[in-house]
């Protein structure tokens, strides 16, 4: 995952092939070792654009969308989860039931229906994914806040007259950070998949911007003659998601042994 991030940021500097340069003479060249040349190590697409450099450019978009969306979800979810777990009572009920309702709409289906109204595009995509992902964070934060707010140190600080805001930020939040970070890595992995799925359906990032999903979608039309157009970007997604999930597992084991059996 880190190497994908590094590749997205530094790649275009090191690998100086313009991802938007079209060259009809060089169209649909296969990757190196499959009859291709070193000039285009992962082959070229239907317009002769270099796949490797489009992947690197796509990495920026995919990671940008997933990171921003995860951040938005985390902020929303943590805030609502803290309120829910700390205040309890009616507001807790309202927040959690809305969450239940939202969870009964599959993430992707919900995202599709919102895109249908707002229209595709980078900003909309980030906003939709960000807002739709709050509930996972809210649930985990709420559960932990419920237990933490009964611990002695919280009672103690309340006894000496600390205000709610102080208790929440100085005492409760630090104790739930580990779970939030772990959740965020898994969420990030999910966002990459959802972003690419939406872009694949033509509901996410708009062409000609290269996103991993749009690359696979474009390649579908040339499936008979050029398998690498679809296969290569998908493999990249798969390994990045795998990396993020492994990183999440590792973090979970490191930060909180109690969580180990969750999945």
């Amino acid at each position: 995952m880190l190497s994908a991030a590094a590749a997205g940021l530094l790649g275009p500097l090191l690998y100086r092939v313009d991802p938007d340069v079209t060259s009809l003479l060089d169209r649909l060249r296969p990757p190196l070792f499959f009859g291709g040349t070193i000039e285009h190590p992962l082959g070229t697409d239907q317009l002769g654009r270099d796949i490797a450099s489009r992947l690197l450019r796509g990495a920026r978009i995919s990671l940008l969308v997933s990171l921003s969306a995860t951040t938005i979800s985390a902020i929303l979810g943590v805030a609502l989860g803290l309120i829910s777990g700390y205040r309890r009572g009616r507001i807790d009920d309202v927040i959690m039931r809305v969450g239940d309702a939202q969870l009964s709409m599959p993430f992707l289906v919900l995202a599709i229906s919102v895109v249908a109204v707002l229209g595709p595009g980078l900003t909309n995509l980030i906003l939709i994914l960000g807002v739709a992902g709050w509930i996972q964070f809210a649930r985990i934060v709420r559960a932990e806040t419920l237990t933490v707010s009964h611990r002695e140190f919280v009672e103690a600080s309340r006894a000496v007259g600390a205000r709610d805001g102080r208790i929440l930020f100085r005492h409760v939040l630090p104790n739930v950070t580990a779970s939030i970070v772990v959740m965020a890595t898994f969420q990030f992995a999910q966002m990459i998949v959802v972003e690419s799925s939406l872009s694949f359906l033509g509901l996410g990032v708009r062409p000609p911007t290269a996103s991993w999903g749009t690359m696979i979608s474009d390649g579908r039309n040339y499936i008979q003659v050029a398998w690498w157009l679809t296969t290569v970007p998908g493999a990249v997604i798969m390994f990045v998601v795998l990396g993020a999930n492994l990183f999440g597992d590792w973090l979970r084991d490191r930060l909180d042994p109690h969580l180990r059996n969750l999945d």
Binding site: V193, G219, R220, I223, T230, M238
Partner: peptide
């Protein structure tokens, strides 16, 4: 199984089409 969980559904579909149909 780890890879299968990370691979996007639509991509698996496209790859299967490449192998078994094309």
């Amino acid at each position: 199984a780890m890879l299968g969980q990370g691979a996007p559904v639509f991509w698996i579909g496209v790859v299967l089409i490449v192998i078994f149909s094309v």
